[in-house]
Simulated scan of single mutants.
Amino acid sequence: MLDRWTMPLTHRPLKCIARPLQQVGITPDQVTLTAFLIGISALPLLAYEQYGLALLVIVLNRLGDGVDGVLARLSGRTSDAGGFLDIGLDFVFYAAVVLGFALANPAQNALAAALLLFAFIGTGTSFLAFAIATKQQAIERPHFPNKAFYYLEGLTEGTETVMTLVVFCLFPAYFASLATLFSIACLITTAIRLWGGYWTLRRPEKP
């Protein structure tokens, strides 16, 4: 919901980070993999309730997730392979963070974490299934031209997800309640994407 406003605001600072990386020959895929390795360390950190350190690696992961795309465009290395790697590792990272909170306090957090993972399956599959279909029909990206895949909007997009992960780390005692609320929002997003995607594909845009 917020991505259409936040993405233009982050482009310039991300470009400032990407330019030096381009000059020393670092590739977008290297940034993607490095960001993932940093981000996945949130899983053990959360399991051991190191919420401050977990927040730091989550922020670094999301920063790298933005830099890799900008670097790809600056260096002319945009590709379906890079986009696939990026989105695939993103979903693994999101799931790892949720699992980390479940491991931190299974009695309190496990059920809410399971619900959120269930909701993530809905948002993720609706996103990727629509991306495959739009690729086949050559439907363009009206609002997010720099995304590797067609970006079907919803109530919970990248900005809302990152904000929620940050709030989880800042207020870990309230994870169960916060995760339940976010799960509801994700399920609404899934419904919106399924409905909107169905009607978009029934009336594809003309090239």
Rank of each mutant, 00 (worst) to 15 (best):
V24A: 01
A81I: 13
V92C: 14
F171I: 11
K206P: 06
T34L: 15
A131S: 13
T134K: 07
V59W: 14
F127W: 09
G196K: 11
A35R: 02
Y51E: 01
L46A: 10
A176L: 02
G25D: 04
L155D: 03
F93G: 00
A176T: 04
V59K: 06
L56S: 10
Y174E: 12
R12P: 00
C186V: 05
E49T: 13
G122I: 10
D90M: 12
A185W: 08
S177C: 01
A114W: 14
A110T: 06
A35Y: 04
D90I: 12
F101R: 10
A42Y: 05
F182E: 01
R4D: 01
A148D: 11
A35F: 05
N146L: 15
I87P: 00
G124S: 14
L21S: 09
F130K: 02
T180S: 13
L187Q: 08
S177P: 00
S75P: 09
Q136P: 01
L89M: 09
K147L: 12
D86I: 06
G83Q: 08
M163D: 00
P20H: 09
L117R: 07
A129R: 14
S183H: 03
A47F: 04
I17W: 10
N146C: 07
L45V: 08
S126V: 10
I192K: 12
T189Q: 07
N109Q: 05
T164V: 14
G83S: 04
A173D: 13
T78L: 01
T78N: 01
R202M: 14
P207E: 10
D90E: 11
L178D: 02
T161I: 06
S41G: 12
A133T: 03
R62Y: 07
L9Q: 13
T27P: 00
T180M: 11
G154Y: 02
F118E: 00
Y174N: 11
S75Y: 06
R4L: 02
L71G: 14
S75D: 09
D68C: 07
C169N: 10
W199L: 13
F171D: 02
T156D: 05
L170P: 05
D80L: 13
F175W: 04
E157D: 14
R4H: 11
A81H: 06
A129S: 15
A35V: 01
